[in-house]
Amino acid sequence: MTTETISNAPAQAGSEQPIVRIQDLHKSFGGTEVLKGIDLDVHRGEVVVVLGPSGSGKSTMLRCINRLEEPTSGHIWFEDVEITNPKTNLNKVREHVGMVFQSFNLFPHLTAKENVMLAQRKVLKRSKEEAARVAEVQLERVGLADRMDHYPSELSGGQQQRVAIARALAMDPHVMLFDEATSALDPELVRGVLDVMKELARGGMTMIVVTHEMGFARDVADRVVFMEGGVIVEEGAPDQVFGNPKSERTRAFIGDIS
């Protein structure tokens, strides 16, 4: 790893500095290389939807952004901090990078409200009253004002996922990462979660969304990235990627699922 510092992070020519910049990202699990050199810039307010078949490395790339996965090589910047620098205080970065998981990962021993309050209290050191107030606002925002005191086991999958989104939003993130947020849900529960995500996108939240929801990608994405075999095969506006894909692989993939 080079000793590149924050100050000489390359700025993208001709536009403002991206909020997330990924450069030549590689990741191997044992002998298997999952990411084979990813370059991606995400700008403030942008909604980037990452598509691709299973095993293409979409989730791994996403998890590298907040270093839940340790990159093998390459660089990632978040705002003006190099995440891949070993000296970086990851907890500080993660405060501002919200993440929503496929399996929700709510804390089962806490109520919905307590789930949303915990990190506010521990990480942001907000007072109990302040954290509770923020939790109420965020839970209302995701349509769960009447479920605040329920435990996760008493909520449907869709409700759980919306609590998870509220939990991430309560930290005032600068970017939200969605890792197949609707894949574990029954079809009838997907819509509620997607509505919340659309609402977020309209509100100007920077989002990187790994999903299989083509409709969401078409409607909401500013940019669609198609990955396969650990590389970005194609990226562009949804109309272009869906309507007139350049790559044969993309064409086959979109043809398969729509």
Binding site: G143, S153, S156, G158, L185, L189, G192, D195, E213
Partner: peptide, 20 residues
């Protein structure tokens, strides 16, 4: 994923979003 315990009634907020 707890697919068994959902309650559709509270989750079915209707939108025109076409979801496949």
């Amino acid at each position: 994923s707890d697919k068994g315990s959902w309650t559709p009634a509270t989750d079915g907020t209707s939108t025109k979003l076409e979801v496949k």
